[in-house]
Amino acid sequence: MDKGADRLRWTRNDALVAIGAAAVDLLGFSVGTRPEGLAPTLSAVCALMAAAACLLARRSRPVPVLAAVLLLGIVPNVVIPDVTPHFPAGLAVALYSVVRVRRSAVAAAAAALTVPLASAGQGGTLLPSGQSLVANAAATALVAGAALVVNRWQREAAANHARQAERAVAEERRRIARELHDIVAHHITAMQLMAGGARANLAHDTEAAREALVILEDSGRIALREMRQLLDVLRAGEEPDETPPAPQPGAADLERIVTESRLAGTETEFTVDGPVRPLPPSVGLTLFRIVQEALTNTRKHAGQARARVRVTYRPDDVLVEVCDDGAGAPAPTARPAAGAGYGLIGMHERVALQGGTLEAAAREGGGFRVAARLPVPAGRGGEGGERHR
């Protein structure tokens, strides 16, 4: 009982459509379709009103509604002699609903039956005239064509929405993968080097070992904090977060990365050219991750090498260059092997999202060079931009 009531439930829009169809049919019948000098009969008016009322169930039971509207439409044709041929608005709505929600075979059968039945009884005969058939066929084709066009548009819109959702999910997965790689690769590499340095100096230089352990502890703390930020993003909306999120690293944190590189045993030079200014958070994070990944690769692949980090602020962009004089590392392939090449791929993706360019290649005289250009149009980076300490 409740299930049937739910199926017959109608909305306010359904009521508005039914009222509109009734008003149009009553007006058209009273003014244009009845013979001169004849007033609408009570039975004809009641039939038109009942046909419009049937439209309230057009979404849940479109085929029975169409059948009821067709049968009720015969009443005015029979009770009013010489009625002018017409195609009621209620019939158009009912046919449109069938074509919209039913299979092609059912829709075609409904359209084929609508053509003759819409004029049945006109002129005192059961069979409609040829002129009425042509007019009904044209009206039926127009209504059915409109329904098919709407169906196709909705299918394309749904497909586009699904593709956009898939692209958004894929992009979010790539973003999380980039962040995880940068956090794990950098901090784990630094922790490994610090642990090795502490072990090597533990017997004869306790102060150096203690300093290495302090850096090891700091790297672990920062890695945990950045991992928590990623988890907070993944769990956003599941539970309220009373503490404000920690700010993402940016250009102001480059000195910290360079210091960690020096303490890890890589002689690193850091220079900044041009007037320093606040950068948009996304640009600052990209700049930070490029330097972080490049220095991590230097420690992993270049051996006992010296590195140089140069950041140049220009009016419309910011440049960053990280070079080393070590052995270098092979460029990644399009599909890197497990665990290889994801850092450079991540850098390319980050820079592309900012509309910039990236170069990463071995140097002719030895070593490796990573250079990126990130556009920062004038006026960006002020409000909401990162702050330089």
Results as ranks from 00 to 15, higher is better:
Ile183Gln: 03
Ile222Tyr: 04
Val272Thr: 08
Arg178Asp: 15
Ala50His: 02
Ala112Asn: 06
Trp10Lys: 06
Ala337Pro: 08
Glu226Asn: 09
Ala111Leu: 08
Gln304Asn: 12
Asp317Ser: 11
Glu321Met: 09
Ala159Pro: 06
Arg59His: 12
Ala158Ser: 12
Pro315Asn: 01
Glu166His: 10
Glu293Gln: 12
Leu230Glu: 05
Arg299Pro: 06
Val99Gln: 01
Val93Met: 09
Ile345Val: 12
Glu207Tyr: 05
Gly303Met: 10
Leu231Gly: 10
Val370Lys: 01
Ala53Phe: 11
Arg100His: 13
Val45Arg: 06
Glu364Lys: 08
Ala52Ser: 14
Arg167Val: 15
Met191Tyr: 09
Arg7Gln: 15
Ala157Thr: 13
Met1Ala: 14
Arg103Ser: 15
Ala146Leu: 14
Ala105Ser: 14
Arg199Val: 15
Gly341Lys: 03
Thr243Arg: 10
Arg335Pro: 02
Arg380Pro: 03
Arg163Thr: 14
Thr125Gly: 06
Ala208Ile: 09
Trp153Gly: 14
Val45Gln: 04
Val283Leu: 03
Tyr313Met: 03
His388Thr: 12
Glu211Leu: 13
Ala246Arg: 07
Gly365Val: 11
Gln354Ile: 07
Arg389Glu: 14
Gly343His: 02
Val351His: 01
Gly124Asn: 05
Asp14Ile: 09
Leu16Asp: 11
Pro377Thr: 06
Asn136Lys: 07
Val24Thr: 12
Ala362Asn: 08
Val83Trp: 00
Pro377Ile: 09
Arg61Gly: 10
Asp325Glu: 08
Arg235Gln: 12
Arg289Tyr: 03
Arg373Lys: 07
Ala137Thr: 08
Pro128Asn: 03
Thr11Ser: 15
Ala378Ser: 11
Leu216Pro: 05
Gly123Thr: 04
Arg335Asn: 12
Glu349Trp: 09
Gly381Leu: 01
Ala185Met: 12
Ala111Glu: 06
Thr298His: 03
Ala362Val: 07
Gly196Leu: 11
Arg277Gln: 07
Ala165Phe: 05
Glu36Trp: 13
Ala138Asp: 06
Trp153Leu: 14
Arg335Ser: 15
Gly121Phe: 04
Val79Asp: 03
Glu179Ile: 11
